[in-house]
């Protein structure tokens, strides 16, 4: 843990979060959220929490951004929130009071990495001392997640698979599901891929799809 770096990364995290909220273009917000994930990953790495850091860097910075862009493709790119001045001026003091309350409460927390902290009493000592002996696994995080608390992991995996199933249930459209088809694709089984306007054949045959427009613009 390096104190000045921690301070800087905390500041950068706050800046990135505020920017991601303020930016009207949702694509920039997606990019900023990916950057936010990277900085959070740096923060976790700074306190030697490498497992969390890797998951944050992998899922937050790489994968969820693409899924966000897919969602933007299906909906709209610009956020159209109206500014409500009255709500803003009532929310600001409330948020400030909440932050003050949290800061005040955090003074009673134990220090980071304090071995006498309440979280480090009880079973965690057993896990730390018994892990290598019980499971031959040097990485305590893995043995905790997949052995001691594997039912939690089972539940988490179930949540992810359920999310995929729910996405399929909501978004997959069959032929003749409904009439108001806003995405403009042809619901016709195998032909729908061609009807959606992708021109792979042109790409593969080496023809530049923009050649016509360039010619038209420069003739």
């Amino acid at each position: 843990m390096i104190v000045p770096l921690d301070i800087i990364i905390f500041l950068v995290l706050i800046i990135a979060a505020v920017l991601a909220i303020n930016v009207k273009d949702l694509l920039a917000a997606v990019a900023l959220l990916a950057g936010y994930s990277l900085f959070a990953s740096l923060l976790f790495a700074g306190v030697n929490a490498v497992d969390v850091s890797l998951v944050e860097a992998a899922l937050g910075a790489g994968l969820t951004g693409v899924l966000f862009i897919g969602a933007i493709l299906a909906t709209s790119r610009h956020s159209t929130a109206k500014r409500n001045l009255r709500r803003r001026w009532t929310m600001l003091p409330l948020i400030a009071a909440f932050i003050g309350l949290m800061l005040f409460a955090s003074t009673g927390l134990p220090d980071r990495g304090d071995p006498e902290a309440p979280a480090h009493q009880g079973v965690s000592r057993t896990y730390l001392s018994q892990s290598l002996e019980d499971t031959e696994t040097p990485n305590v995080v893995t043995s905790l997640l997949a052995d001691y608390r594997s039912q939690d992991t089972l539940g988490e995996t179930l949540v992810i698979v359920t999310a995929a199933l729910a996405a399929m249930l909501v978004l997959v459209r069959r032929e003749g599901d409904d009439e108001d088809d806003t995405r403009g694709s042809d619901p016709g089984g195998d032909t729908s891929g061609e009807a959606r306007g992708t021109t792979d054949d042109e790409q593969e045959s080496g023809r530049d799809p923009y050649a016509d427009e360039r010619e038209g613009g420069r003739r």
Binding site: V50, D51, L54, V55, T137, N139, V141, T142, A146
Partner: peptide, 10 residues
């Protein structure tokens, strides 16, 4: 995942 960062999720 046994020896370094990682595991099933990442």
């Amino acid at each position: 995942g046994h020896y370094g960062p990682g595991g099933g999720f990442a």
